[in-house]
Amino acid sequence: MKKHEINISIDEAKSALKNIDKTEQDTNKYLRMPIWLNISISSSFGMGVFSWASTRHENLWMLGVIISSAVFFIAVGIYLYSSRLLGVKPKVLPTRKSELKFGLITAIFFGLVVALTKVVSAGELWWLSYVGSIFGAFAFAYFLHFFPSGDYRRGLNKNV
């Protein structure tokens, strides 16, 4: 058997690349959650970081951690359920090596935000619990908005 080679012109290749970029942009648009849900998930994460950093000894801030965790998981559940109703199935586990790497890096990043906020705000710098929680909430909202597929290669496209 002979292999048939198909020669593609430069214009056809450019058109195919534009179609791939458009498909990736459309995928990100469909996977992206509504702004109100992004705000509720991010703010509950920020409140959880603040409450965890404010817990010293045995006080009521642990109740804030519990409530913000409950709101966080309920909002994520609403996102997953509403996405299923719309016919979009967001991935929970990574399927590619780049997604796994991105997930591990972001998990380490947010783990460091939580741990550093707790450790640094324990002394006289109590106000850093506010800074750490606000930084964590805005970073979480940024990642949820610009990287909904969990892949850094598909995240920031030109015309988002």
Rank of each mutant, 00 (worst) to 15 (best):
K101F: 10
W52P: 00
A75N: 08
W126H: 14
A75V: 03
K91V: 03
F102W: 13
L100P: 06
Y79R: 12
S129N: 14
I67C: 02
E99W: 10
R56S: 10
T95Y: 01
Y130W: 13
S121W: 01
L112F: 12
R56G: 13
T55K: 03
V88E: 09
I67L: 06
L80F: 07
S83V: 11
S69K: 09
F110N: 07
A53D: 02
L93Y: 09
E124A: 13
I67W: 07
A70I: 04
Y79N: 12
S69Y: 05
R84M: 02
S98M: 05
V114L: 14
K91F: 05
W126D: 15
G103R: 09
W127E: 13
Y79M: 00
T117K: 02
S83I: 09
H57F: 01
E99N: 08
G123T: 04
S98V: 13
G87K: 05
P94A: 01
E58F: 00
V71A: 01
S54R: 04
Y130P: 11
T55A: 11
L125S: 15
E99R: 08
E58C: 01
L104Q: 08
P90E: 15
A53F: 01
P94M: 05
S69P: 00
I67A: 11
H57Q: 11
L60P: 03
L128P: 11
T117A: 04
F109E: 13
A107W: 01
L100C: 10
K101R: 14
S83H: 14
L86I: 15
G64Y: 05
W126I: 14
A115M: 07
K97H: 00
A122E: 14
I74H: 03
A107I: 15
W52G: 04
A70Q: 11
A122S: 15
L100F: 08
F110L: 07
F110V: 05
G77Y: 00
K97G: 08
W127V: 10
L80Q: 15
T55W: 04
K97A: 12
V92T: 15
V114P: 03
L85F: 11
Y79W: 07
R96E: 14
F102A: 13
Y79H: 09
K118N: 14
I105N: 04
G123L: 06
I74F: 09
S69T: 14
K89D: 08
I105V: 12
T55S: 06
I108W: 05
S54L: 02
A107D: 10
R96T: 15
S82N: 11
A122Y: 08
T55L: 04
W52V: 04
I74Y: 12
A122L: 11
F110K: 09
K101P: 00
T95H: 01
I66V: 10
I78P: 01
E99M: 03
F72A: 11
R56P: 00
G64C: 02
L128N: 11
S82F: 05
G77E: 07
K91H: 07
A122P: 07
S129K: 06
G103S: 13
S54N: 10
V120T: 10
